[in-house]
Amino acid sequence: MAINENDARAVANLARLELGETAGQVADPARLKALVDEFSKIVAYMDILNGAPTEGVEPLYSPMTDPLPPRADEPARDGQKADELLGQAPERVGRYFSVPRIF
């Protein structure tokens, strides 16, 4: 199927990506059009699957057929690892990860 600018914008929004704009600056129309066209072309290619004889075929989501191995319910705490993980944060307040206020 063909993708128009609104479709592409909706997808970009769902994916939390900008669409051609940089750092909040509105996209250059030519650049935007090129991105939408490219995306549309890629999606259109996928339509080749319309020809696949999938009637009644069970989807295959993973080649793994073994059952899920359950883990024993035994706790483990690694304080040093927790600190290292926290240390990766771009912004912190005390022991919290910090982001701009939500509401």
Binding site: L49, A52, P53, T54, V57, P59, Y61
Partner: peptide, 9 residues
Amino acid sequence: KKAAQTRRL
């Protein structure tokens, strides 16, 4: 879903 079905094929 179509692709997952084709994957089985």
